[in-house]
Amino acid sequence: MSSGAELVAATAVLGAGTFAFRFAGPVLRSRMTLPGRAERLLEVAVVVLLAALVATSALTDAHTFAGPARPAGVAVGALSAWRGAPFLVVVVAAAATTAVLRLIGAP
């Protein structure tokens, strides 16, 4: 079991590292220039990474398929957000869809 001092030290080190990474972006932006193609690829990479994270979270649970209820809820939430619904409506619609599907027996 770790002592309290080790936990505080690890938290401080991780916090400092995170701050350094976030601070390096604006500081180095003026010193480094990337070709236009590289900048466009980095912008697309962010979208692809977030889409992969959403897909993984929506479709799997403990390295297995999560069942149809969770992806259906995510789809309803995405559709609601795309149609311009307020955030609260998006969350409630997604949760309600998943809950109703699980209530009627969908895993």
Rank of each mutant, 00 (worst) to 15 (best):
M1H: 12
M1Y: 08
S2N: 09
G4H: 09
G4Q: 06
G4P: 11
E6L: 04
V8R: 11
V8G: 07
T11P: 10
L14C: 13
G17T: 06
R22Y: 14
F23L: 14
G25H: 14
G25Q: 14
G25F: 15
G25P: 11
L28A: 12
R29G: 07
R31Q: 13
T33V: 14
L34K: 05
L34D: 03
G36I: 05
R37S: 06
A38E: 03
L41W: 02
E43I: 03
V46H: 08
V48L: 06
A52M: 07
A52H: 04
A52R: 04
L53C: 11
V54Q: 00
T56Y: 12
T56M: 15
A58V: 01
A58F: 05
L59P: 06
T60Q: 07
D61Q: 14
A62S: 15
H63P: 07
T64H: 13
F65I: 10
F65M: 11
F65P: 12
A66W: 03
P68S: 01
P71K: 00
A72D: 02
V74P: 11
V74F: 12
A75G: 01
A78D: 04
L79K: 03
L79Y: 05
R83E: 04
R83H: 07
P86T: 08
F87R: 12
L88D: 13
V89Y: 10
A93T: 03
A93F: 06
A96R: 02
T98V: 14
A99E: 13
A99M: 12
V100A: 10
L101H: 01
I104H: 05
